[in-house]
């Protein structure tokens, strides 16, 4: 793993400054009290009271989390670049942290006025986020592209092809299997689903709808456990997801008209990882930037991310014949 950073950290300075401003404002204006509104309904009226520092720490904590997430995303984007491209995801931290500052200002305004009615946070959030986003655009345009070597390990599949041809001649049952289940997926599947489950149980009495959403989210994340698995038999190409083995793709191999090994940029081309739709195709991948583009006779395109795309393509070609 290359430890050098390809996305300069100074691009996050505006978001970091906004976050620091949030800390300073909290230190000056948030009182040490235990009887301030800390949670509001959609009408802006409080539905729970407590220490206002609960709100301040929550907002500042979120801003730090967003900046951290943005550092990781921007670095991933830079590592997937083969030329300078505009990273629209780099606006994420400025917009989100700007909105959080707007929320904090709105909360401080409410505390200062002595009224228990939260003024619309968007009044502050939209202009601040807008200015921050504009700054972020200027910075992103000035961000230098740092060229780096991308090492692609193209596998020799001659031996595998020969072996498959032998088995195909004898019409023997066979299966090619591979999976993508990175550590982050397992962590997400376990930690997020357990957290959502506990949160759902705790909030069940007070906020049943929120709780229901949490239970559904817990289930959705738990389903990811096990990652994406690809299976090719002489008759079928199957892509399964997670612990339940949900079929993302189940194609008759005779429906495949072509297969091609391609490279792609997960963030630039599809905006992330997982199950993605874009560029006229449906893509399934959890890591890496190479895969096999499968085109069906009906003209549908599916991109299957793979750690061994040459092998997967060789097997698919053999079963198509």
């Amino acid at each position: 793993m290359n430890r050098r950073l390809y996305h300069p950290l100074w691009t996050h300075i505006p978001a970091a400054l906004i976050s620091m401003l949030m800390i300073i404002l909290a230190a000056i204006f948030i009182p040490a009290s235990n009887a301030a509104p800390v949670h509001f309904g959609l009408d802006g009226r409080p539905d729970r009271y407590g220490s206002p520092w609960e709100v301040a720490i929550g907002l500042i904590g979120l801003s730090i989390l967003y900046i951290g997430t943005s550092v990781v995303i921007d670095e991933l984007w830079a590592r997937q670049e083969d030329r300078k491209t505009f990273n629209w995801m780099s606006l994420f931290d400025e917009i989100s942290v700007g909105a959080l500052l707007g929320f904090e200002l709105s909360y401080i305004a409410m505390l200062s006025s002595g009224r228990n009615l939260l003024p619309s946070p968007w009044f502050f959030a939209i202009p601040i986020s807008g200015v921050a986003a504009f700054l972020a655009v200027l910075i992103e345009k000035r961000r230098p592209y740092q060229p780096h070597e991308v090492h692609i390990n193209v596998e020799d599949t001659a031996e595998l092809e020969e072996e498959i041809a032998k088995r195909r001649e004898l019409d023997l049952p066979m299966v090619y299997w591979e999976s993508q289940n990175p550590v982050y997926n397992t962590v997400l599947a376990i930690i997020v689903s357990v957290t959502m489950l506990i949160g759902g149980v705790i909030t069940w009495i007070y906020l049943p709808w929120t709780s229901t959403v949490m239970f559904i989210s817990a289930f959705a994340f738990l389903v990811l456990y096990g990652g994406i698995r690809v299976m090719v038999t002489p008759n079928r190409l199957v892509v399964n997801l997670g612990i339940l083995g949900v079929h993302l793709l189940n194609l008759d191999t005779q429906q495949i008209s072509s297969v091609q090994v391609i490279g792609f940029s997960p963030l630039r081309d599809f905006g992330g990882y997982g199950i993605r739709v874009g560029r006229g195709m449906v893509a399934f991948y959890m890591r890496g930037n190479r895969g096999v583009l499968v085109t069906t006779r009906a003209g549908k395109k599916f991109l299957i991310g793979s750690d061994h795309p040459e092998r997967l393509a060789a097997v698919l070609k053999s079963v198509m014949e």
């Binding site: 049952p173 066979m174 299966v175 299997w177 999976s179 289940n181 698995r229 299976m231 038999t233 083995g245």
Partner: peptide, 15 residues
Amino acid sequence: DPLPSVRELAESLQI
């Protein structure tokens, strides 16, 4: 490296 589940491998190989 992970291996396919028992069920997945059995179904694919029809065994």
